[in-house]
Design a protein around this nucleic acid. Structure first.
Lengths: 235, 235
DNA sequence: CTCCTTTAATTGGTCTACCACTTAACTCAT
DNA sequence: ATGAGTTAAGTGGTAGACCAATTAAAGGAG
């Protein structure tokens, strides 16, 4: 028995894999571009001569990787192929692991420091413009509203983009919403601290502009200090 | 609008996610040990009050992560968790879009430095035992085989575990197999460098044991230097 | 002719019945 | 009492029917 086990991993191609291969070829051949809708499950099922269950499984698998997105009662569309594949993976794994808040924040801090350091070295002029715009949006939101968490986080996301590391940016995209949710629930962002935060953002942006890595990292570290302390308390 | 889109993936917990959480809790609570059979799909469907389709979807997803394995017409069993479970997870997707290797490696280095630093502060005695075991497994594999990449990476994964940050560990779990695949394809690991690597692993473990953070980080940095250079060349 | 309302067709989501295979219990000849 | 042969219950696999939401087409009022 055990000896024969070695030969067992041959695996015939399952119907699902066949379907995946077909859909994949439709995409790589350019017949299906990002944004296009897939033929309906019934049509595919009939065309490929298999049950709809198989089609659904195949779609689900591709959706799992972030290649497709199903819109209920509407259709299945093809996603962009830049980093979306990883994005789907991350969020799926995250659901299974159920991380604690402290780990999330600690990881965020680590990545932010890494990102801001990269940003000082790699930022383009366009990055600077985006950062400036994000900062202004934050400032504007503060003046008219109580809740500016979204704009706050968006600025940090732009820093990650300016760091020009797709993987890190994707990770930030996955982690930040989770942290944001807890922020809102615990009402972490005090009213009086917003102006202080705005100033810190400004200082960080300046450091990025001046390409002063050490200064940027230091400022970011100070900026995120409170959050880290806060997450320790919750723990 | 476009800015807020990034955070828009709010996600309400689907039935499938609920089931996954329940099955997971059965496993982590020890009620289901590796090798055990899951209750049948019908039983679960009745017990949890949902259709069998949902149960099947949940099982399929967990199977995808290597946590479960279904034996047709027989049952579903719980696997041990290992890096090999995730191996090849990306391989399906890679055919469509090859992720930026340099970003992957750069991110890995950043996280490894972060992890090893945490490990020096938080490692338990059990962590040390696991690291020791992983190191021995690596050494043993080197002596009998040419390919010890799995064991190499497993050691690094154990360091991430010793760092006691669930998020970072999860990210490593996702990134490492992908890097591993490229390693194998490009045949990066030279025969002569294996003993050198083993020694470096040993030194890192010692630094963790002695709780010398600075030394551990420095050693890790040196250890990963080649990989980073290599990824730059490929780029 | 235009715009709003209504209606019919189509979509993905869900459930249930049936299938082939496995497994364990049972029967019966030895 | 034992063993092989048989049978029945249980398993995951598959397909099709039905559901609610969406969407596009048809109809009618202005």
């Amino acid at each position: 028995m055990e000896l024969l086990d070695n030969f067992k991993a041959i695996e015939v191609e399952t119907p699902v894999d066949k379907i995946i291969r077909q859909i994949r070829s439709l995409i790589v051949s350019g017949y299906l571009a990002p944004g296009d809708k897939l033929p309906s499950e019934r049509k595919l099922s009939e065309k490929l001569g298999v049950g709809r269950t198989y089609i659904r499984d195949a779609i689900k698998k591709l959706e799992f990787f972030g290649i497709l997105t199903t819109h209920p009662q509407s259709g299945v569309v093809v996603n962009g192929t830049d980093i979306s594949a990883m994005e789907g993976l991350f969020s799926n794994v995250m659901k299974i692991e159920r991380p604690d808040f402290f780990s999330l924040v600690e990881t965020r801090v680590s990545m932010e420091l890494f990102s801001v350091q990269n940003a000082t070295k790699r930022r383009t002029d366009e990055d600077l413009k985006n950062l400036e715009k994000a900062l202004e949006a934050y400032e504007a939101k503060i003046k008219i509203s109580q809740h500016a968490e979204n704009e706050d986080f968006l600025f940090h996301l732009k820093i990650a983009e300016a760091g020009h590391n797709a993987v890190v940016k994707t990770m930030m995209l996955i982690i930040l919403p989770d942290i944001l949710a807890i922020y809102k629930k615990e009402n972490f962002c005090g009213e009086d601290e917003k102006l202080k935060r705005l100033g810190e953002h400004r200082a960080i942006l300046d450091a990025i502009k001046e390409k002063d890595a050490d200064k940027a990292v230091l400022l970011m570290q100070e900026h995120l200090k409170n959050v880290l302390e806060f997450s320790k308390k919750i723990l």
